[in-house]
Lab assay of single mutants.
Amino acid sequence: MATVKFKYKGEEKEVDISKIKKVWRVGKMISFTYDEGGGKTGRGAVSEKDAPKELLQMLEKQ
């Protein structure tokens, strides 16, 4: 499965596409929420050019 690499609050993070719950576009950025486990929801964003094609496909399906 594909992963998304991004920075959040200065920390490098990587999340599996299957854990992503919601995806939306903000200008040229793709924002998303994902399941961190333990009932927590994380947030992240990547630029449109750095987003994996699976993430862009999720955006188109909504």
Results as ranks from 00 to 15, higher is better:
residue 1 M to V: 11
residue 1 M to L: 05
residue 2 A to G: 10
residue 2 A to H: 14
residue 3 T to D: 01
residue 3 T to V: 11
residue 3 T to P: 03
residue 4 V to E: 00
residue 5 K to C: 07
residue 5 K to A: 04
residue 5 K to F: 06
residue 5 K to Q: 13
residue 5 K to T: 09
residue 6 F to M: 01
residue 6 F to Q: 00
residue 6 F to V: 02
residue 7 K to Q: 05
residue 7 K to A: 08
residue 7 K to L: 13
residue 7 K to P: 09
residue 8 Y to C: 13
residue 8 Y to N: 03
residue 8 Y to F: 09
residue 9 K to F: 02
residue 9 K to Y: 07
residue 9 K to E: 15
residue 10 G to T: 03
residue 10 G to W: 02
residue 10 G to E: 12
residue 10 G to R: 02
residue 11 E to T: 07
residue 12 E to F: 11
residue 12 E to H: 05
residue 14 E to C: 10
residue 14 E to G: 02
residue 14 E to Y: 04
residue 16 D to N: 11
residue 16 D to Y: 12
residue 17 I to M: 10
residue 17 I to P: 02
residue 18 S to D: 12
residue 18 S to A: 07
residue 18 S to I: 15
residue 19 K to R: 11
residue 20 I to T: 03
residue 20 I to C: 13
residue 20 I to L: 13
residue 21 K to N: 11
residue 21 K to Y: 15
residue 21 K to G: 15
residue 22 K to W: 10
residue 22 K to F: 05
residue 23 V to G: 05
residue 23 V to L: 06
residue 23 V to R: 01
residue 24 W to F: 09
residue 24 W to L: 06
residue 24 W to G: 15
residue 25 R to K: 05
residue 26 V to D: 09
residue 26 V to M: 06
residue 26 V to R: 08
residue 27 G to A: 04
residue 28 K to G: 14
residue 29 M to S: 13
residue 29 M to Q: 11
residue 30 I to T: 03
residue 31 S to Y: 03
residue 31 S to D: 13
residue 32 F to T: 00
residue 32 F to K: 00
residue 33 T to F: 08
residue 33 T to H: 09
residue 33 T to K: 12
residue 33 T to V: 08
residue 34 Y to L: 02
residue 34 Y to G: 00
residue 34 Y to K: 00
residue 34 Y to Q: 00
residue 35 D to M: 07
residue 35 D to C: 14
residue 36 E to G: 08
residue 36 E to P: 11
residue 36 E to M: 07
residue 37 G to T: 03
residue 37 G to F: 05
residue 37 G to S: 09
residue 38 G to H: 14
residue 38 G to W: 13
residue 38 G to D: 09
residue 38 G to C: 15
residue 38 G to M: 11
residue 39 G to Y: 14
residue 39 G to D: 15
residue 40 K to I: 15
residue 40 K to M: 15
residue 41 T to S: 12
residue 41 T to F: 14
residue 42 G to W: 11
residue 42 G to R: 10
residue 43 R to Y: 06
residue 43 R to V: 06
residue 44 G to I: 05
residue 44 G to V: 05
residue 45 A to C: 13
residue 45 A to D: 15
residue 46 V to W: 01
residue 46 V to F: 02
residue 46 V to Q: 05
residue 48 E to A: 07
residue 48 E to T: 09
residue 49 K to N: 12
residue 49 K to Q: 10
residue 50 D to E: 09
residue 50 D to K: 13
residue 50 D to Q: 05
residue 51 A to S: 10
residue 51 A to Q: 03
residue 52 P to L: 10
residue 53 K to F: 13
residue 53 K to I: 05
residue 53 K to W: 08
residue 53 K to Y: 08
residue 54 E to M: 08
residue 54 E to P: 10
residue 54 E to G: 10
residue 54 E to K: 04
residue 54 E to I: 10
residue 54 E to T: 12
residue 55 L to M: 05
residue 55 L to V: 08
residue 56 L to H: 06
residue 56 L to M: 10
residue 57 Q to T: 05
residue 57 Q to C: 11
residue 57 Q to I: 14
residue 58 M to V: 08
residue 59 L to F: 02
residue 59 L to S: 04
residue 60 E to C: 13
residue 60 E to V: 09
residue 61 K to V: 06
residue 61 K to T: 13
residue 61 K to E: 09
residue 62 Q to W: 02
residue 62 Q to K: 01
residue 62 Q to A: 06
